[in-house]
Design a protein around this nucleic acid. Structure first.
Lengths: 227, 227
DNA sequence: ACAAATTTAGACAGGCTTGTCCAATTCGTC
DNA sequence: GACGAATTGGACAAGCCTGTCTAAATTTGT
């Protein structure tokens, strides 16, 4: 009654827990050592299970790798869409609200463990699994950018911004907000909270300088919005 | 008389040619397969030499890898500084000149073979060779960004731009100009000439919207230029 | 053309890794 | 408490890769 899953088809309990544990450890090792350098014994040790359990759960190294990427993709996308849902559609203070949004995006999606791991795996092994990463590309950046572009379009429609192409603006927003974190990302590190805040602040300020509603004689703005 | 090197200490001739050939092939294979997955036999075959020759020239796999990274770093830095030398200090048409500069930067430094390879190697193996990549970081991005910031400061001083922090502006310029190429870079591909031009155009336009000299009553700008 | 150095092909040992098999043990459920 | 499924540790074969060594072939400078 507590759980909806049928008790006969669902294995005991820690079965799934161990599976998750293995995938987590595998993500860490694949990232650190690369696919070829990743050692199943090390993954098993880091997950706290025996090597045989790894094979029982995932078949072989390649299937394990695919499971890791799918897992990371799913969690990252969920996080990104949850964060986009917090976009300031009706900003009280546009600059502060956009900075706060950018910080959330960076902290919860780009700079966290999953985000950094997924990026590194895509960069390192993307060419070897075209269909797997095509899938990621469609589900992730494709839908992410569209969703963010829609939010910016709405801000422009409401008269808070002056935007030509919302898709371009969305990509540029993300680029600006991460401009100061590139080097840290390169080496796989996680930027400090302060770095994230500074990069977001500088990025949003430049973004608003470029896309702020053009100054017009008082009273004109509302007219243009509904024209 | 043709060459300044002393003939006794310098090996025959194709010795150096083969060395270059091996380093080039190694760069390609290390990028494609990762350090652990790279196979010395494959590198030798791709370089058109025997395996033993690889060992004669470079000692072992790790030394070969270091040689590859140093080689790429050197060539990339040279290209970047050569390109920065072409920065439009006295622009006839600021937007067009900055777009052309951005395209040169992308095509000759960021998107070419060396740039893509170096980036991938840093991302994949950077954590394993801290001192090697600290060196790259100081010689490359550190000096590059400073040089570019100085050029932007000069443009601002000459009255063409209104910039708060030139270092921030330089980083944001690069981020904006590459904003639309991120996905392509992720998968290791090279963007088309058209993509490079579009990204540069959109990036420079937004950059200028943000940093263009504030509009002043007609006649003021020219005065400021020579002030 | 000669002599020295380089390159080559191949064999080789040593080490490491993957994936399988199996008997003993532990765990969760009834 | 007993049953069945999952887990464990270890042994194991097979394959791959690195790095070394050798003798023969080739190239280079003089």
């Amino acid at each position: 009654m507590k759980l909806a899953v049928s008790p006969d088809t669902f294995p005991p309990r820690s079965h799934e827990a161990k599976r998750v544990s293995v995938v987590d450890a595998a993500a860490s090792v694949f990232c650190r050592e690369g696919y070829a350098g990743a050692n199943i014994d090390l993954i098993a040790a880091e997950a706290g299970v025996s090597r045989q359990t790894v094979y029982n759960h995932h078949g072989d190294k390649e299937k394990l790798f695919v499971a890791v990427v799918r897992d990371l993709t799913e969690r990252c996308n969920a996080g990104i869409f949850a964060t986009i849902a917090s976009f300031p559609d009706q900003p009280a203070y546009l600059e502060a609200d956009l900075i706060a949004f950018a910080v959330r995006m960076n902290r919860n999606c780009i700079c966290n463990r999953d985000g950094r791991f997924l990026r590194k795996l895509i960069q390192a092994e993307g060419e070897r699994y075209p269909e797997l990463f095509a899938e990621w590309r469609e589900q992730g950046p494709g839908r992410t950018w569209s969703a963010l572009a829609a939010r910016f379009a709405r801000l422009a429609f409401a008269g808070h911004l002056s935007i030509g192409d919302p898709d371009v603006a969305a990509r540029q927003f993300l680029a600006l907000v991460n401009a100061e974190l590139q080097i840290t990302f390169m080496l796989g590190g996680a930027p400090t909270e302060e770095e994230v805040l500074r990069s977001a602040t500088n990025g949003v300020r430049t973004f608003l300088s470029a896309f702020a509603k053009k100054k017009l004689p008082a009273g004109k703005q509302a007219v243009l919005v509904h024209a």
